[in-house]
């Protein structure tokens, strides 16, 4: 199915409040979904007979922010955290990119991680991918069975792939010079 057909099918099922965007200009066309409904949409994407997205190729977080004041004027994106799902159907051999956009901090309180429903019960691999996105980008996946850091040590502070991440000066007595 083409991305337009998938978009039409999803809009018919969930309405345009949930399916909030479609970009067919991009190299990999994508559909944007409202964060609160992602788990329902993901279940539908996997189980619907016409879609059957049985494989989650990649799940990652992106921090859309330009910290350099000079470059910020030209920066083409609104500040946000985006979770990107790259799906593939082994059964029907088609691809889809799904995006979920949330504010950088929950309720705009710095330090409160934005919340996105977990899809780890739909695709098993999402368990580890979501742990990585939590660890590096700082996204709280609601409903994840074991949301702990995976690459950084458990006592690490901050989320390194955030654009405004401050590199620590010291870790357990080891100076970072």
């Amino acid at each position: 199915m083409t991305v337009q057909e998938i978009h039409a099918l999803l809009t018919q099922q969930f309405g345009s409040d949930v399916i909030t965007g479609l970009n067919t200009e991009a190299k990999d066309p994508w559909i944007e979904v409202a964060p609160s409904s992602m788990a329902d949409v993901a279940t539908f994407l996997k189980s619907n007979e016409q879609l059957r997205f049985d494989s989650l190729n990649d799940l990652t977080g992106v921090d859309l922010l330009e910290t350099d004041a000079k470059l910020a004027a030209k920066f083409p994106y609104e500040p946000a955290i985006v979770v990107v799902y790259h799906l593939y159907s082994f059964a029907l051999k088609h691809r889809l990119t799904v995006k979920v956009k949330t504010p950088r901090w929950k309720d705009d309180v710095e330090g409160q991680l934005p919340e996105v429903p977990s899809v780890s019960d739909i695709w098993a691999i999402a368990d580890w991918h979501e742990r990585e996105a939590y660890d590096l980008v700082g996204i709280n996946f609601i409903g994840h069975p074991n949301l702990v850091r995976i690459l950084c040590p458990d006592d690490w502070e901050g989320h390194p792939l955030r654009k405004d991440y401050q590199f620590p000066e010291e870790y357990h007595g080891v100076r970072n010079l």
Binding site: T60, V62, L64, W128
Partner: peptide, 25 residues
């Protein structure tokens, strides 16, 4: 299947350079 995901923002350096590891999965 090793995946790379690149987002450009008009600069020479990508906004996001993601390497999806096959062994990780």
């Amino acid at each position: 299947q090793m995946g790379f995901y690149i987002i450009g923002d008009g600069q020479a350096e990508p906004l996001r350079a993601r390497a999806k590891s096959s062994c990780f999965c």
